[in-house]
């Protein structure tokens, strides 16, 4: 394969949710969730505990029925739940045989390559493998099924920092080679820069923000300057902090307008993904945006 600088087709939609809702008894776990995830993207699904991330993935994967709205994914979907399920008495080799039987499309070489990459013994019962190794077996199975859409619920949890980095790099290589779309939920927001290129932010079962990561972050600025009730530029104030004689504003700039120039005593700073996510979640907790 060669490297060519050419535009990626962003027109095809890989995952679509329309006014999606899911209820457990009387409580809505997910409500009015609408988004289109373009094909070939690596999307991060982020939100506080209980925000509805697992519910959303489970519904999108077709393992749970929605109570309202609709959800769909194009092509084959593979889903690895948070528990990274493997059969305790099966060896990794047995799991691969199972994968070959259960999947319509099966790429044995790809699954084996993943296991070899992470030095997982093929003949040992999964129950005797460490939690991290069991996760690798579950990933290998998902990768081997050659999905068009791969959904991973907290794939990086229970992995040490080195393994997190290696799994991420391996996963991104698979994306590059196969063109699959990835949706992964995670709490490790600080590690997503350069990894995810699309963000879905959930709070209290509702989609707070969704879209291209660079665009989302590019529309937000943090201003720090002298104590003031209003920010130095027009836009929606996501967060305002005041201490002594200093004020800090996190502002969402209006769409489609040139970036305002602020002068004088104000300094502006681009946002990191973590700044953005924390401010958004904080704002919903206070009910400021309700």
């Amino acid at each position: 394969m060669i490297t060519a600088v050419e535009p990626v087709d962003r027109t095809a939609i890989a995952v679509r949710a329309q006014a999606l809702g899911k209820r457990y008894r009387n409580k809505w776990a997910l409500r009015e969730c609408t988004f289109d995830l373009p094909a070939g993207r690596v999307a991060a699904l982020v939100g506080a505990n209980g925000a509805g991330k697992t519910t959303l993935m489970t519904v999108l994967a077709g393992l749970l029925d929605a109570d309202e709205g609709s959800a769909g994914a194009t092509g084959r979907v593979a889903f690895v739940s948070q528990e990274k399920p493997v059969y305790r008495h099966f060896s990794a080799a047995d799991m691969l045989r199972l994968g070959a039987h259960l999947n319509v499309v099966w790429d044995e070489a790809r699954a084996r390559r993943w296991l070899a990459r992470f030095e997982i013994p093929l003949d040992k019962a999964c129950g005797k493998l460490s939690g991290g190794q069991q996760a690798q077996v579950a990933f290998a199975l998902a990768i081997g099924s050659r999905p068009s859409v791969l959904m991973l619920d907290e794939p990086l949890a229970n992995l040490d920092p080195l393994a997190r980095r290696e799994v991420t790099a391996e996963l991104l290589s698979e994306v590059d080679e196969t063109g699959m779309t990835v949706l992964l939920s995670t709490h490790v927001v600080a590690e997503l820069a350069g990894v995810a290129d699309y963000l879905l932010l959930l709070a209290h079962g509702r989609l707070l923000a969704g879209g291209d990561l660079d665009e989302l972050l590019g529309r937000h600025v943090s201003y720090t300057g002298p104590r003031s009730d209003v920010p130095p530029a027009l836009g929606d104030v996501v967060e305002a902090r005041h201490t002594g004689n200093q004020s800090t504003f996190l502002v969402e700039l209006p769409e489609g307008q040139p970036r305002p120039v602020v002068a004088g005593q104000w300094t502006e700073r681009p946002l990191t993904l973590e700044d953005y996510v924390l401010a958004q979640l904080e704002a919903t907790r206070k009910g400021a945006r309700a």
């Binding site: 394969m1 490297t3 050419e6 980095r165 790099a169 991104l172 350069g194 290129d197």
Partner: peptide, 19 residues
């Protein structure tokens, strides 16, 4: 420049980002 694939594998950066 390194191929997109090389950058992805070595630096753990999304291919879309490199492109």
């Amino acid at each position: 420049l390194p191929t997109v694939r090389d950058v992805v594998a070595r630096s753990g950066v999304n291919a879309n980002t490199v492109l």
